[in-house]
């Protein structure tokens, strides 16, 4: 099976190790991975800010770059949701087959592993580790993916900690976090204040992780934040 990796703009710039870990993890599961070098951004920043002509321009580029992808794997629930459901809204009746086909072939990483590959355990390297999982809103509510990442973590031996705000938005929201920084920070603070002292906080979304870890750093420290791909690859690779 061949899968194309869309690393996302934030993943590329801030989670390079997690992107590399995604490649290794997928290869270890027998997937032939390629990375389209023309990729840039899915267009969601412009889309959510209401600047749809700009969003369409970026999305058109991305559709072209990914036209040959058999499967598209995205280590971000939010960007995967943009390509699966957002593009349909963005292009409406003008979207045509390219938009519909890409939507059908696009998966967030955990969704792909569990749903497409049919794998529900990637390793056992998380035994004894207390893991808090942050559900990105778009993975949860747009993609409808709640259980896949939890299944993979649990089957890797992780103890999933109860987190009151696990399904509450972290406050990133793309440009929201720069336009209303105080509200955005207060939202992150609620997530951090309710966090029950885990060994690792993980999530499938670079944006959420960047926001939460950046906020924790500003407040003077906090737990270890790692992308789901890295946590799963280490579980598979026995290094965690």
């Amino acid at each position: 099976m061949r899968a194309t990796l869309f690393v996302t703009c934030l993943g590329d710039q801030f989670f390079a190790d997690a992107c590399a870990d995604t490649v290794e993890l997928l290869r270890s599961l027998g997937v032939d991975v390629d990375v389209a070098m023309g990729q840039t951004c899915c267009g969601q920043p412009a889309y959510n800010a209401g600047h749809w002509p700009e969003a369409r321009s970026i999305a058109s580029h991305t559709l072209g770059v990914l036209a040959d992808a058999e499967y598209l794997v995205v280590p971000s629930g939010s960007c995967a949701a943009m390509m699966r459901t957002g593009y349909g809204e963005l292009f409406g009746d003008d979207g045509g087959r390219a938009v519909a086909e890409l939507a059908g072939r696009t998966f967030e990483l955990a969704e792909f592993i569990v749903g497409v590959l049919g794998v529900d355990a990637v390793g056992s390297g998380l035994a004894g580790r207390r893991v808090a999982y942050h559900h990105g809103c778009h993975a949860l509510r747009e993609l409808g993916s709640r259980e896949e990442p939890l299944t993979l973590l649990r089957n890797a031996g992780a103890e999933l900690v109860q987190w009151e705000a696990a399904e509450e938005c972290c406050g990133f929201g793309g440009l929201f976090s720069a336009k209303l920084p105080e509200v955005s920070a207060a939202m992150a603070d609620r997530k951090l204040d309710t966090l029950p002292d885990p060994d690792i906080v993980t999530s499938a979304d670079p944006g959420c992780l960047l926001h939460l870890s950046g906020r924790a750093a500003e407040r003077g420290g906090g737990p270890v934040f790692r992308h789901l791909a890295s946590v799963l690859w280490e579980a598979a690779n026995g290094r965690s």
Partner: peptide, 25 residues
């Protein structure tokens, strides 16, 4: 712009150096 208000409430940006795509290339 934007980064100014982001960095007012967050720690420094944790850039990956180099980025993944540069590494891949």
């Amino acid at each position: 712009p934007f980064l100014k208000s982001w960095l007012a409430v967050h720690g420094d940006l944790p850039w990956s150096k180099p980025s993944f795509l540069r590494r891949w290339k």
